[in-house]
């Protein structure tokens, strides 16, 4: 029950932090610029105009869709971390054959799937806003798509096996393969060409870094809370099973 309380507290704090980051992203973070726009005459605009001699005036093109970055990236990172966690539990299960590790691995995989789907949604919004298309077979988006498919495959695999222990072993083996495969997909797609923005390349202004970090911390807390809540639900179910077993015997 202690874990449940911690989970709820973390969920609240995480939710608060993420919401804070949301407001910060709009009110305190600097608007990133993406190229420049040149106009013939002086305009009434919020952006600072720079005279470029005879050619008129120019200003940095505001890049509003970049705002999604404060959520897209933390969610994506959280999903990846939770997938790794799932694989770690899977390995521990294979070593010890304790069912509790299998349950942990499965719940982590579930949590990761939720975050991967959120990543996909924010990613699709991004491509629409930034590149004008709903879907782009852009390497990193594709990789997340593949991750999502692997996670669905994990649950398909589990559901198609009758024997409980075999289900756990096969699930664990596939979780490990999926966690190894995801970074390979990242790397191979990077070897080939990509037009996904690489954000940290040129450094960020501190007004942008702060909401990012807040969102990151908040998202990890939410991630853990989701995992812990599902776990305590699962434990309850196991206790019911154990009680049933005891009554029958």
């Amino acid at each position: 029950m202690k874990q449940l309380r911690i989970a709820i507290i973390l969920l609240l704090i995480g939710g608060l932090l993420t919401t804070t980051a949301f407001f910060m992203a709009f009110f305190t973070a600097e608007v990133q610029q993406f190229g420049t726009v040149t106009v013939a005459s002086e305009l009434d605009t919020a952006f600072q105009l720079v005279s470029v001699g005879d050619n008129g005036f120019s200003y940095g093109r505001p890049w509003f869709s970049q705002k999604i970055f404060y959520f897209h990236v933390p969610v994506a990172e959280a999903s990846f971390l939770v997938l790794l966690l799932s694989a770690v539990f899977a390995v521990r299960f294979l070593m010890t054959r304790k069912r509790s590790f299998d349950t942990k691995s499965r719940i982590a995989m579930e949590t990761s799937l939720v975050f991967v789907i959120l990543t996909m949604i924010t990613g699709v919004l991004w491509t629409r806003a930034s590149w004008g298309v709903w879907w782009e077979w852009e390497p990193r988006l594709t990789t997340y798509f593949i991750m999502m498919l692997m996670m669905i495959a994990y649950f398909v695999l589990r559901n198609s096996i009758e024997d409980e222990e075999r289900r756990a072993v096969y699930g664990a083996a596939f979780a490990v393969l999926a966690a190894i495969n995801a970074p390979i997909s990242f790397m191979i797609t990077r070897v080939l060409e990509s037009n996904h923005p690489v954000v940290f390349q040129s450094g960020m202004a501190s007004s942008n870094l702060l909401p990012f970090i807040v969102a990151q911390v908040g998202m990890l807390m939410v991630g853990y809370a989701v995992y812990a809540l599902r776990m305590s639900e699962e434990r309850l179910g196991e206790r019911i099973d154990a009680a049933k077993e005891a009554l029958e015997g």
């Binding site: 594709t142 593949i146 991750m147 498919l149 692997m150 669905i152 495959a153 398909v156 695999l157 596939f174 393969l177 999926a178 495969n181 390979i184 997909s185 790397m187 191979i188 797609t189």
Partner: peptide, 10 residues
């Protein structure tokens, strides 16, 4: 098929 295709992607 479901297991193989995503794992074979890279």
């Amino acid at each position: 098929t479901v297991l193989m295709v995503p794992l074979m992607y890279p």
